[in-house]
């Protein structure tokens, strides 16, 4: 399973969740495979996709999904403690783990420690690991309302290299906020 196959599998599982995807190739792949207003493509702020997603869950009634890479999670590992103890409802944290920083040329990460084990130790209510498309779909189907949920998708390096997300940041923000139910409230306060 490569990144493109994993993103396509996740896309087929999504319904009306709000999605926060991390900087680099993961947001590019998601924007290419399954662009929708409820996707927040993080362009910078590496490591913070799951923290942004937790904040979204504090203000929106919708379910929230964070999609990030192993390098992203390793940069902000303490997020596991915050999410596991905040216990947000309808929160799924998906990590695509290829053991490298592929967006910057394939330098190795430290993900061999087993990021799913860390999520389990932190206290996530559901933890699953998959290494092929069928397994990933089964892992996502197994979430069934358990939250916070953590799904580790072990992926191969390589796959497609999509162009940059073709949307200005303010457009990404405004259409996401509208989906989250927040644009009206924020605009009226501005």
């Amino acid at each position: 399973m490569n990144r493109q196959q994993a993103i396509r599998a996740i896309s087929s599982w999504l319904t009306d969740e709000l999605v926060v995807s991390c900087n680099g190739l993961i947001s590019r792949e998601l924007a290419s495979a399954h662009d929708r207003p409820g996707n927040f493509y993080m362009l910078g702020s590496m490591g913070l996709a799951s923290s942004i997603a937790l904040g979204v869950s504090k203000a929106s009634q919708k379910k929230v999904v964070a999609i990030e890479g192993d390098g992203n999670l390793l940069m902000n590992l303490n997020t596991l403690a915050t999410i596991a103890t905040e216990k947000p409802g309808g929160f799924t944290h998906i990590v695509l783990d290829n053991n490298v920083y592929e967006s910057t040329g394939g330098q190795g990460t430290r993900s061999s420690i087993g990021l799913d084990g860390m999520a389990k130790a932190a206290g996530y209510m559901y933890v699953a690991r998959a290494s092929d498309v069928g397994g990933l779909i089964a892992a996502l189907d197994g979430v069934k309302g358990k939250s916070p949920a953590f799904v580790l998708a072990k992926i191969d390096t390589g796959g497609s290299a999509q162009p940059r997300v073709p949307l200005p940041p303010q457009v990404i923000r405004d259409r996401f906020s509208k989906e989250a139910g927040g644009l009206h409230e924020r605009d009226s306060s501005i």
Binding site: S51, G55, V56, A59, G182, R186
Partner: peptide
């Protein structure tokens, strides 16, 4: 980041 996520979904 958590504050910013809440802001995206309508809170100050």
């Amino acid at each position: 980041a958590i504050a910013s996520g809440a802001a995206l979904a309508g809170k100050l």
